[in-house]
Structure formats: C-alpha cells, structure tokens
Nucleic acid binder design. Structure first.
Length: 282
DNA sequence: CCTGAAACCTGTCTGC
DNA sequence: TGCAGACAGGTTTCAG
C-alpha cells in the first residue's frame, strides 16, 4: 500500500516519535521473531536471528519505498509492499505478562527496554532483509524524486532514453524511486498527460510540468502524513485531496468531464480523458 | 527493449 | 443470506 510519502511518514515516526509514537533510535534489539517465514528474504533464519541480536538502532531512513534501519553492524531493510504496516508498542503489561500479537503480525523485533517493533502484513507480500551492504539492493533504484540532483534535465533525459507508456515507466522503481499507483495517477492528472503517453514523445514543456507535478504531489502527501485508504488508517489525510484516484465517474475538478478508469501496466488507472489527451506525435 | 499475463496472499465489496 | 468474482497503495518472472 504505502508509497514514498507513507514510508517517509513511517520513517519519521520511527526516528522522531511524536504524535504518540515512540522512537526506536537508540534501542537495542534483544531478539527477533519471524512469524511467516517468507517474510525474511535474506539471510537464513538462523543467521538473521544470531546476527540481529544485540545490535542497536543507529538511524532510520528511507530510500524509495524501502525503510532503512541502520544498526551497529548491519542494515535492516523493510519493504511494506501492498498491505504492510509497522507499529511500536510495549511488549509487556505492567504485571510482566507479554502482550498478545495481532492476527497478521509477521515479524517482531523485541528491544531490551520491553518495547517492540511489529511488522503487520495481511497479504504477506512484505519483505525484510538484514544485510551488511544495503547498496546491493538500494543501488538498483532510480533517483529520489525530491533530491536536488533530480533536475528537470535529468528527468527529460531519462524519459527520452525509453519508449514506454509513461505510467508504466513512473511505476518502474529503477526509473524513479518511490512512486506508486496513487501518486502516479495524481501527478499525471496535474501535468495533464495521458497515462499511455509514450515517454519519448513528451516535449520539454510537458516534461517539466510532469517533473513539477511529481514533486508537488509527493511533498503534499508527506505534509499530510500520507494517505489513508481502504481499511488502513495511519493518520494521514492526503486521500481527501485526490483528484482522480478512486474518483471514477465523478466530475473532473478542472472541466467537469467524468473521470474514467482503465488498465495500464496491469494497474487500475484513473484519468480525465478531456484534460489528459493522448499525444502521439511531437 | 517493451508489453501483458501470472504469481505471490488475504480481505472487502459488489452483484446475482 | 450466500457465494462467485473482481479488486486492492507492489514487485518479480516469464512468454511473445
């Protein structure tokens, strides 16, 4: 479920606490449990448990949709995929009895101070890695859209080095890191670009417009603590500003034409056919 | 290189 | 009320 703004919101909560949350920075992992074995991508369960025990959390960050938890000797990477969520909570009652876990909890990181970080993941797509060289994984990702080095020129060049449907390209994490289905649809709407637009047909004007829209949508998402949709609520309210996502049939906020839904790259895609015309020639 | 389909999973919602 | 089917904020793998 989560895209860049939601993962960023979680990273900040784990790092800084706040809004009732508890920071995990400085806490030492006593032991970890994997409740659904396939949650652990790397290393083996035995290596994972012996290596992670006793390591202190030094930093919490984000790269694309990966949560990056730097430990003393290793890096813990967490990807929430479609339905993952994280929470920090006390692991015991005052009496000392351990608190029960929830139905879809898949991994638990128990700290020495009787707090725990719990990875809840109904659809079991989420994954965890404990690695010494995170760049092996993170290095495959495309640029961070909010970093200064991600300039309109860089974006234009990258767009023109492919001939692909723009939506599919934006969802490709090796092209640009962090965009998912919601923010892609919203960014394309703001830029007035059709989701099937071939990437190398975009002229400099449209390319810059898309570059700005991507950054705007992500920044707004972060400032609203992400979006809460379906049955998953974690405090964000970006969903209240959606202009096309999940608004099929409703009037476009710009022209009143009904929002349409189609499928691009196997993903439900929402757009305004009037505001977002398909341009097939330069 | 690009596209679409299937697979990995469970829960929810819609329509008959 | 019950059940089948579609669909869901993601990614990988494979065939054409």
């Amino acid at each position: 479920m989560p895209e860049l703004p939601e993962v960023e919101t979680m990273a900040r909560a784990l790092r800084e606490g706040g809004r009732g949350g508890v920071s995990i920075v400085g806490k030492t992992i006593e032991h970890a449990q994997i409740l659904w074995l396939r949650t652990l991508e790397e290393p083996s369960l035995a290596d994972f448990q012996s290596r992670i025990a006793g390591q202190r959390v030094m930093r919490v960050g984000r790269r694309g949709k990966f949560l990056v938890i730097s430990l003393e000797r290793d890096t813990l990477l967490i990807h929430l995929r479609m339905s993952g969520d994280l929470r920090v909570e006390p692991s015991r009652e005052d009496s000392g009895a351990s608190l029960p876990l929830e139905t879809h909890d898949r991994a638990v990181f128990n700290f020495l101070d009787d707090y725990r970080l719990v990875f809840n993941n109904p659809r079991k797509f989420g994954r965890v890695w404990l690695v010494s060289a995170p760049q092996t994984l993170l290095g495959k990702l495309g640029p961070e859209p909010l970093e200064e080095t991600f300039t309109p020129e860089v974006f234009y060049q990258r767009l023109h080095s492919h001939h692909r449907q723009i939506k599919a390209l934006l969802l490709d994490q090796t092209f640009i890191a962090g965009l998912g289905n919601i923010y892609t649809d919203e960014a394309l709407f703001r830029a007035k670009i059709h989701p099937r637009q071939p990437s190398d047909i975009l002229d400099p004007t449209r390319s810059v417009r898309l570059w700005s829209s991507i950054r705007e949508v992500l920044q707004e998402g972060i400032s609203r603590n992400g979006a809460s949709i379906d049955w998953v609520y974690r405090g964000g309210d970006f969903q209240n500003t959606f202009q096309v996502y999940q608004r099929t049939g409703e009037p476009c906020s710009e022209c009143g034409h009904p929002i349409e839904k189609c499928v691009v790259g196997q993903r439900g895609t929402h757009f305004c056919p009037h505001c977002q015309p398909l341009i097939t020639q330069k």
